[in-house]
Nucleic acid binder design. Structure first.
Length: 443
RNA sequence: GUGGAUGUAGCUCAGCGGUAGAGUCCCAGAAUGUGGAUCUGGUUGUCGCGGGUUCGAACCCCGUCAUCCACCCCA
């Protein structure tokens, strides 16, 4: 007798049971529809690439997190840790075959060997969308509008996109004479909402001195409105400049589209990553702000400079699918998604197997998802199965019903039966049934 | 990577040196083809895994794996 191998999973890697995977799939479908409605096209790239390609610009932190090994041919390879670096390689590789501006979306798994936590895993899904080849306010706004649209499509009650501009911040830093400490300053500032104003002030004072720390705090102070805040940071940064103008343009477009309320100018958000050069943004849900940003991104000057001499400016964002799922779970607790199948054809007699299959075929032809229970089992068990599958109805027909010439439609939620003289009558009656599917929340 | 907490039935948890338990769920029957109340009976298990101490370990010790929390960083 062979020893049983203990079934187990690697730290930070997960299985998805049908219920969870159906929720995830539903989310991806909504995002896909949104991206397509804005003109983004899909691409895919390999999970595994030459380590040299993926790690080209990576700093110490990233490098430690990358899954890297030698393949059987001795090649130095690594699993992708985000979708942006492979995208850069992709653009350089296919530059001649593509048109600009290029708008793509890419939803795929990435891997990072970092320590796990709630909502943070070693294998997780990223949903990126970018516009490369242009550096305009229109492109920036397109990304913001896509985010807002996606949030609406996902059924999020309320969300705010916090926007800022790296350029304006850098002007301010240069003016304050701490340009060379920009990276450290940005890192501290980025934590404002987490550690509070006092702690931010203390850390900043340590880095640049009390006077300048106060200036920084004044710069990042939450404002009273987009325009007022923009005026203030522009003044502190030394007056009118193209970056402030870009922000004003963005807000103008948002206002025209009725999105002014969804967008907040938040000078304290700067994004940790240093490759952003223009607007940066993070998206927070009104209901669960403490879960963090569910969609972040920004503008970068040069996407693919490591792989090509072509200059490719771009702007894009990434939806944190797992975090978003966690957030939606807290706001829509207890909701059970409808099953894929609406009908289960109960199997009462193996002599009627052909009839069951014919009925199923007819229903599918009518556009109704259904399945035949695959063995004769007692009714209780078949009803329970049907409910597990999220079906609304069971179709019951045994020898007695056949003799009587009837089809029984059982409403699984109300547990009531209705008889029909023909399958066609049953189908049309069920098709006009207004009751929403999957309503199992009632006590 | 650093520090802390936790792993017992499918689920929620109790037990903390002396025969593994409760609730729930599930199964069977009272109702021989129609699931929800009630009653009766029944099954739940490598006590995360591997060592050690002990007459005896779910319990104490060491290691290990996993989860959660904080730091770090990020999606």
């Amino acid at each position: 007798m062979a020893d049983i191998i203990q079934p187990r999973l690697l730290k930070g890697f997960r299985d998805f049971l049908p219920h969870a995977e159906m929720e995830r799939a539903a989310l991806l479908e909504k995002l896909t529809a949104t991206f397509r409605s804005f003109g983004f096209v899909p691409i895919d790239t390999p999970a595994l690439e030459y380590a040299e390609i993926l790690l080209g610009k990576a700093g110490g932190e990233t490098e430690k997190q990358v899954y890297r090994f030698n393949d059987n041919g001795g090649r130095d390879v690594a699993l992708r840790f985000d979708l942006t670096v492979p995208f850069a390689r992709f653009m350089a590789e296919h530059y001649g075959e593509l048109y600009l501006p290029f708008k793509r979306y890419h939803m795929a798994k990435v891997w990072r060997g970092e320590n796990t936590q709630r909502g943070r895993y070693r294998e997780f899904m990223q949903c990126d969308f970018d516009i490369v080849g242009v550096d305009t306010a229109v492109a920036d706004f397109d990304i913001l509008a896509t985010i807002a649209s996606a949030m609406r499509a996902l059924g999020v009650q309320g969300s705010k996109i916090h926007v800022s501009h790296r350029g304006v911040f850098n002007r301010f830093l240069d003016r304050a004479g701490i340009g060379e400490k920009s990276v450290e300053t940005l890192r501290i500032v980025d934590k404002l909402s987490k550690i509070g104003a006092e702690e931010t002030r203390r850390q900043l004072s340590e880095l640049v001195g009390v006077g300048i720390a106060d200036e920084v705090l004044e710069f990042i102070r939450p404002g009273d409105g987009f325009s007022a805040t923009l005026d203030r940071i522009t003044r502190i940064a030394g007056g009118s400049n193209p970056d402030s103008d870009r922000l004003a343009e963005l807000f103008g477009m948002a206002d025209s589209c009725g999105l002014a309320d969804s967008i907040v100018l938040a000078p304290s958000i700067t994004r940790g990553l240093d490759y952003y050069t223009g607007v940066v943004f993070e998206t927070f849900l009104d209901a669960v702000p403490d879960i963090g940003s569910v969609c972040s991104g920004g503008r970068y000057n040069d996407l693919a400079s490591l792989y090509t001499k072509q200059r490719l400016p771009g702007v894009g964002a990434s939806v944190g699918l797992d975090r978003l799922l966690a957030a939606l779970e807290t706001t829509q607790a207890g909701s059970k998604p409808a099953g894929y199948v609406k009908f289960v054809i109960v199997n009462l007699d193996s002599a009627l197997a052909g009839e069951y299959q014919a009925a199923a075929a007819e229903m599918r032809a009518a556009g109704i998802a259904c399945e035949v229970f695959p063995e004769t089992r007692k009714l209780v068990s078949q009803y329970a199965y049907s409910e597990q599958k999220g079906a609304s109805f069971a179709v019951v027909r045994g020898v007695t019903e056949k003799e009587r010439g009837v089809w029984i439609l059982r409403d699984l939620a109300s547990r009531s039966n209705t008889e029909y003289a023909s399958l066609e009558a049953l189908i049309s009656a069920a098709a006009s049934e207004p009751r929403p599917v999957g309503d199992t929340t009632a006590p």
